[in-house]
Design a binder for these strands. Sequence first.
DNA 1: ATCGGCTCGCGCAA
DNA 2: TGCGCGAAGCCGAT
Length: 450
Amino acid sequence: MIKDNIKIIREGKIKKNKYIVYWMQAAQRVENNPALNYAIQKANEIEVPLFVFFNLTDNFPDANYRHYYFMLEGLKEVEEKLKNKDIKFIIKTGDVTKNITALSKKAVMLVTDRGYLKVIREWKKKIAELIDCRFLMVNTNTIVPVDIVSDKEEYAAYTIRKKVMNKIDRFIDVCNNNYKLENKSVELNFEGVKLDNIDKVINNLDIDISAKPSKFFTGGRSEAVKRLEYFMNNKLIKYEEYGSNPDQDCTSKLSPYLHFGQISPHYIYKRIKKSKIKADSFIEQLVVRRELSFNFIYYNKNYDNSLKNILPDWAYKSLMEHIEDKREFNYSLKDLENYETHDEYWNTAQKEMVLSGYMNGYMRMYWGKKILEWTNNPQKAFDIALYLNNKYLLDGRDPNGYTGVAWIFGKHDRAWKERKIFGKVRYMNKNGLDRKFNMDKYLKKVSKLG
DNA sequence: ATCGGCTCGCGCAA
DNA sequence: TGCGCGAAGCCGAT
């Protein structure tokens, strides 16, 4: 295990006690899970049993029926896979701080995976103050840990590219699979939530049910691997040319699985490399763009709220200089949410997201640029875009999502020719879509969704 | 169809 | 200090 891949959240002696707990949160998988591996190794070394714990929190910000359903499908697979390894898996509802604190009382140490969202980091900080055993986390969801890549918020992709690419080799092998637990019997005096019936589990949660589960995505690691193999065999070779093209279907669609940690980026990277297919532009997405997103939300605590503190000065200043510019169209959240604008391409993109939980990458840019154009205040536009993004996309509430929305407003981008509303922030329009793509084909594709 | 200019600032070469 | 260049562009000139 590589030292740099582990972070001690709370020091503390390793106590003589009943068990080790792996609190699974960001890495919802059994395979290629460095945190699980670490916990198993430690349990064997100290000669204690181990169990895996998952806290099913019903007040996770912006998470709704759609997200919970996909997540629980994935957790059901985790349950089966752990059972095959004779590792006990306990899911509990309720307050995460209380639950983890209670479990820690009999724990030799507490191991968790590394989530980067503010809400997760705050949970851990709070828990660290309440417990008295050792508490550490293992990096699982990026290949290179964000603070090893860089010690500051990066300006753009070109400033982070070298920093991350030349560290991949150091971390790529942390996710091996062949760890076996030796002490298997754990005595626990409580029962966890059963996952046999996902609908029943969801009915018992107090969550927003307005976004229904996606018919086009099934959660779980095996589904993710299936998609990866299909992508490699059929799409990867064309990815560089057609990957961003809305009239093609040329992407991996692995982002929801990566979001929930159902598949490891290390595994994807290795699998792609092993295929020997030239995949520079896919690796650019998987590694450079992805690590840039994590860098942004790790070093900028305003990632979900204040444009003033998110954007480079030139972009914020420029948008503000145009705040009084007349907007030709001005839509309410309801108009947008129900895809009722004058713009058929925009409506289609929004519809794709609402119906499927996914939106084509290029259309995500166009979609966001129009929200900026049609809203009388950039901050309001940012809030609306983030709200819709997080509500409907299965990969919403992800570092990539926050970064993608910020990009619309100039983050990680450069200045362009001055124009109305946008100022120097990059502009996009319908002509660009018509020029580059067969948009009728995209419209037809989405109309088939329902 | 293709191309240059637009415009800012980081990082690196010198 | 100067220079090259950057997530996916736009627009007008040729």
